[in-house]
């Protein structure tokens, strides 16, 4: 997994790339959580994520919940077909914010 962060005003966009599994979830959290804790609205661009398992989904859930606790939001953008399929299998498409 690799990533790139761009910031514009209060919006931080994290472009994730590659396969997100148990092996990289800590790294993903280390990237995303500080942005949420800093009060940013975080956009996760998942266009280049080819694979995500339950550990990756847990990062999405925890990020969503942390942002909600702080009165903010995490928005999932340009979700790849394979990741969307997993989100839908987890029945989370109505819970997570998807644009």
């Amino acid at each position: 997994m690799s990533y790139k962060i761009t910031e514009e005003g209060n919006i931080a966009t994290v472009h994730l790339d590659g396969e997100i599994d148990m092996d990289v979830t800590e790294k993903a959290k280390e990237v995303i959580m500080p942005l949420i804790e800093a009060g940013k609205e975080v956009h996760l661009n998942l266009k280049e994520v080819q694979y995500m398992d339950s550990s990756g989904i847990s990062v999405l859930i925890e990020s969503h919940q942390k942002a909600a606790e702080l009165g903010n939001k995490v928005i999932l953008k340009e979700i790849s077909k394979s990741v969307l399929k997993v989100i839908m299998m987890a029945k989370l498409e109505q819970i997570l914010i998807i644009e």
Binding site: D53, S54, S55, I57, S58, I61, E62, Q65, V86, M89, A90, K91, L92, I95
Partner: peptide
């Protein structure tokens, strides 16, 4: 559980779905 919004048990849920 289907309406449980947490990650725990999600992998086993996926296996059962597939």
């Amino acid at each position: 559980k289907i309406d449980d919004i947490k990650a725990g048990g999600l992998g086993t849920f996926f296996i059962g779905q597939i």
